[in-house]
Write a protein that binds this DNA or RNA. Structure first.
Length: 221
DNA sequence: GACCAGGCACATC
DNA sequence: GATGTGCATGGT
């Protein structure tokens, strides 16, 4: 039974690593900013960029609204891809002002499905970034999938290697209770275990999931 | 110095 | 529709 297996994985990870206290960030807009800045980027670099924005008192939609892209790019430089991410962050802010007066609280009464497709329509916001925003900044019951989720799921035979994003997301959502706190912790734990044990050249020895059945060898990645 | 990181859009075939 | 490439900094 798949839900039993998913539950077992969750329990092993939680027992081994403990709560991960995600998302690191104080306000919804800071979380959204982090979600965009962390695209294909180490979180420590994102922290530097967010600290820069904080020091300049720019971490709010209305502060970014009239800031030049090039100025914004300089502040977020440590996060890498700074030109393209400045554009993406601005795209989100533009969308927020054009549709909701720049007010994140006005998103609260919108259905999750419609909100997801609206956010996905913003250029530079793909499925993982959109779902991170929905779950961690806006409190929606949406499971976030990322490269580590995929690696762990494939390695343990939960899904075939050729799966797409929506298929993997559906696997978790249809086999787990729609629980915001569970989705929050589960995704964070998958990132945690993936970083240490599911990377190229990483050894599986010591992984809390080491004894579970698996279908792919560690050197797959 | 090579390799990697909590993606995404776009070009080309 | 599948595959390849640009975007960029900072840690290991």
């Amino acid at each position: 039974m798949l839900n039993r297996k998913l539950t077992q994985i969750y329990e092993l990870l939680l027992e081994c690593f403990g709560p991960q206290h995600w998302w690191p960030g104080d306000t919804p807009f800071e979380i959204i900013t982090g979600a965009i800045l962390t695209q294909n980027t180490n979180w420590t670099n994102v922290e530097k960029a967010i600290a820069n924005l904080n020091s300049a008192d720019l971490l709010a939609p209305e502060k970014l609204r009239n800031l030049e892209i090039s100025d914004l790019a300089e502040h977020i430089r440590p996060a890498g891809y700074f030109n393209i991410k400045a554009r993406r962050l601005k795209n989100f802010v533009d969308w927020l002002f054009e549709n909701y007066g720049g007010d994140l609280t006005r998103l609260e009464h919108i259905g999750a499905e419609r909100l997801r497709s609206e956010i996905l329509g913003i250029k530079g916001i793909g499925p993982e970034t959109a779902d991170s925003i929905l779950l961690y900044a806006l409190g929606r019951e949406v499971f976030v999938v990322d490269t580590y989720t995929s690696r762990v799921a494939v390695r343990h035979g939960l899904i075939e290697p050729e799966h797409d994003y929506e298929q993997l997301q559906e696997l978790f959502q249809s086999n787990l209770p729609a629980d915001r706190a569970l989705y929050n912790e589960y995704h964070a734990l998958l990132v945690r275990v993936g970083k240490q044990f599911c990377r190229p050249a990483a050894r599986c020895s010591g992984c809390p999931l080491e004894e579970l059945p698996h279908t792919l060898e560690p050197d797959y990645f």
